[in-house]
């Protein structure tokens, strides 16, 4: 078995600021990896570089044997709508707000060739159920949904084509604490059920502990510590990780 996504020596500077400073990363099939660190530590930049949205100054990214940085736009988009998924912090960035819930979920199916309305609709209804939204809301517009529902709809829309790797950028970011817990649990269950590989960017240590098998701690563009989630959080070695962990109220 080999890593599903593999990055080596990623470097990216914005002027004098090193957003990525020699980052290596592997994600294995079925593995959930969290990248934690404070705002501006380079987490989101790393996500954008790994998914080919931003070219790095140096380094390489391999997905399933393919060179992500060298591939053309067509191949990358094809990856994006088949093997990859992207869950944004703000559901408005990941949903079409003027399109019904069913249309939002069906889009990836249609983009990959589904042409049977009834089947698309049935799949969309099934996915609404799986993310705990009443299938009666199939034809409702996302703007009539609460924030937590919008986020769950975004997850349904992303997972409907069974991607192999899902990038999540602060998926519980703007939500109430009670809503966060439900969403995290839903993500945890779906990830386990579908055997997804996930790269989760978050500054929420509790979310990382619940979801991730492995954690990378980033600071100023560098991975300062990484390893098994419970070991990094319970026995942090780097001063920055110790600061990060002790800054969290025990739950």
């Amino acid at each position: 078995m080999s890593a599903l996504l593999s990055a080596r020596g990623l470097e990216l500077r914005f002027g004098r600021i090193a957003a990525l400073d020699g980052v290596d990363l592997d994600i294995w099939p079925g593995e959930v990896v969290a990248i934690v660190g404070e705002s501006g530590s380079g987490k989101t930049t790393l996500l954008r570089v790994l998914s080919g949205l931003v070219p790095p100054d140096a380094g390489g990214v391999i997905f399933d044997g393919q060179d992500v940085l060298g591939m053309n736009e067509a191949a990358r988009r094809n990856l994006m709508r088949t093997q990859w998924g992207f869950v944004h912090q703000n559901p408005r960035d990941g949903l079409r707000m003027g399109v019904s819930a069913g249309g939002n979920i069906g889009e990836r199916l249609m983009a990959t060739g589904a042409r049977h309305y009834g089947n698309i609709r049935a799949a969309a209804a099934d996915w609404l159920r799986r993310v705990e939204i009443d299938p009666d809301r199939l034809d409702a517009l996302p703007r009539t949904f609460s924030g937590g529902m919008q986020q769950r709809l975004q997850i349904a829309r992303t997972l409907v084509t069974h991607p192999r790797l899902v990038f999540m950028d602060e998926p519980t970011g703007g939500l109430d604490v009670s809503v966060q817990a439900r969403l995290l649990d839903l993500i945890r269950a779906l990830v386990a059920e579908l055997g997804l590989s996930v790269l989760l960017v978050t500054h929420d240590i509790a979310a990382a502990r619940l979801l991730a098998h492995r954690i990378l701690v980033m600071r100023q563009g560098q991975v300062v510590e990484q390893g098994l989630t419970d070991r990094v959080l319970d026995d942090p070695q780097h001063p920055y990780t110790q600061l990060l962990v002790t800054s969290v109220l025990a739950a």
Binding site: G227, L228, D230, R231, D234, D235, Q237
Partner: peptide, 9 residues
């Protein structure tokens, strides 16, 4: 115990 489990390095 935690070392034996790998919870502590």
């Amino acid at each position: 115990m935690r070392c034996l489990y790998g919870n502590y390095g």
